[in-house]
């Protein structure tokens, strides 16, 4: 349905922005929910997870788009997985080298980027069918959309659960933390809250467009 489904179409703004809003991987397509729930207990963790996933998305989009005419259809999924796994392993080592604290906070979820369907979905649905430039821009948009979603969830959870945002105290020392928001149920509460907000905004917009068209 997107305007860029054909290979020869020129790059448009939608190539980039569809991942941010219209096809946001978490809030609209409901992909990659496992990391979105599991490592979104603080805004910093969420941001790190988002950046790591964006890097994997960019790298795999680039390589898959480059190799798209060389990989036979029958082994494409296996090839995509190997390529994605390579970048995930790289990210894993790099984060481990950059900060031990961050590495411990993200835990097994860095390795689990490999099964994030938002990434394999991009490889299958976009990168394997488009030119390198398109694939990179689209992958970057999707990565940003994923990061945005994680930070939105992580931000709310951190504000309520710790009284801080990106580690900066918002309410002073007397703040009563809402422990439940740091625990797994809090992830579900906040994610569903954002899903409701996004759905409401989308419905409003569609209603307006319909009214406009008529």
């Amino acid at each position: 349905m997107s305007a860029t489904s054909s290979k020869d179409k020129p790059m448009t703004a939608t190539t980039f922005t569809e991942g941010l809003w219209k096809e946001n991987p978490v809030f609209v397509m409901l992909l990659g929910l496992c990391p979105a729930l599991a490592v979104s207990n603080t805004a910093v963790n969420a941001l790190a997870m988002g950046v790591a996933s964006t890097f994997v998305l960019l790298g795999s989009s680039l390589l898959i788009s480059l190799l798209r005419n060389l990989i036979p259809k029958q082994v494409r999924i296996a090839s995509y997985i190997i390529i994605i796994a390579t970048f995930v392993t790289a990210v894993d080592y790099i984060i481990h080298a950059l900060s031990l604290e961050l590495y411990n906070a993200l835990g097994a979820f860095i390795q689990l980027i490999v099964v994030n369907c938002a990434i394999l979905g991009r490889a299958e649905a976009y990168a394997s069918k488009h030119k390198v430039g398109h694939a990179l821009v689209n992958g970057f948009g999707m990565g940003l959309g994923f990061t945005l979603a994680l930070v939105l969830v992580g931000g709310v959870r951190e504000i309520l659960g710790f009284g801080t945002l990106f580690g900066v105290s918002l309410f002073g020392a007397q703040f009563q933390p809402w422990a439940v928001f740091i625990l797994p149920p809090g992830g579900f509460f906040v994610l569903s809250f954002w899903l409701v907000v996004f759905a409401a905004v989308r419905r409003n917009r569609e209603r307006k467009e319909a009214a406009h068209g008529a």
């Binding site: 082994v75 090839s79 190997i82 390579t86």
Partner: peptide
């Protein structure tokens, strides 16, 4: 194809 991709991947990982 798969072998080449795997080799490329292995090489990259070792490097990193």
């Amino acid at each position: 194809t798969l072998g080449l991709i795997a080799m490329l991947s292995g090489f990259t990982i070792v490097l990193i």
